[in-house]
Simulated scan of single mutants.
Amino acid sequence: MDNMADRVNRSSRSRRDSGEKPTGDARRDRWRKHRIARRAEFVEVALRALDEHGPDMGMEDVAAAAGVTKPVLYRHFEDKADLYLALGRRGTEILFERLIPAINAELAPLPRIRMALDAFFSVIEEHPNLYRLLARKSFGDRPVDADVVAEDKQLIATALTALLGDYMRMLNMDSGAAEPWAHGIVGMVQNTGEWWLDKRTMSRDSVVEYLTQIIWAAIDGLTRQHGIVLDPNKPLEANKVVTLKRTPPPFEQTGESS
């Protein structure tokens, strides 16, 4: 399946800058940096507009929040889908900035699981409308040919597969179970997150704690079947780590005025 960056690259190939590296033309390079910075500013404005207007936010809402006209906004974003994808990338950055340190923390298993879950739930709690926008794959009245949530799920599940596989091999267990186990955990956490955002029948701390205990119970049960007893509050001998990031697409040229 094509990832989000591929779709963005295809959609604006005819209007893309020649590359991210300096061109040697000082004026052109300054202007390129200005466009990149200006586009990033509009994305942050769009995040704030989402808080006010919800996932039905339109381009006119973003323009108004930024204090510019829609034509100015369209100099930096090809269309609604382009802004949607930029919001998706920003959401991924926010999530991974919190999730990666939590997953790779040199902690005992139980607090490590708890920290990773809290990182995810803190992001969707702070940006619920962004998550809703990306999950429904539409911007205003226009469907978007991208599934940022599914792509992030795949990235996280792949990284978690590697992490679990490393630990299972370290414990002389069959690591073949790592992939379905990782996808099962990611799916459970996402589904629980969507339910929690909709219902809010308990605090974030409570839902994180319940999920922590469920995930640990599965780990503890599986290891005990192999005669291995782990202390949930004692760090393991080796701290396995993962890398988790998207490869940023080339800068897309969307105009020369602000």
Rank of each mutant, 00 (worst) to 15 (best):
R7W: 02
S11F: 02
R15A: 12
R16G: 04
D25Y: 15
D25T: 12
A26V: 15
K33C: 08
R35H: 11
R38H: 07
A49L: 03
D51I: 06
P55Y: 09
M57V: 02
D61H: 08
V62Y: 01
A66Y: 05
G67M: 09
H76C: 07
E78Q: 15
A81Q: 05
A81D: 03
A81C: 08
L85F: 07
L85G: 01
T92N: 04
R98P: 01
P111D: 07
V123R: 00
E125D: 14
H127Y: 08
Y131A: 05
L134E: 00
R136K: 15
K137S: 13
R142A: 11
D147H: 09
D147R: 08
V148Y: 00
E151D: 14
T158D: 12
A159F: 02
G184Q: 03
I185P: 00
M188R: 05
T192Q: 09
T192H: 04
R200N: 14
Y210N: 11
T212C: 07
Q213C: 05
A218D: 11
I219S: 08
G221E: 11
L222T: 11
L222F: 11
H226K: 13
N233I: 08
K234S: 09
L236G: 04
N239K: 05
V242R: 02
R246L: 10
E252Q: 13
Q253G: 11
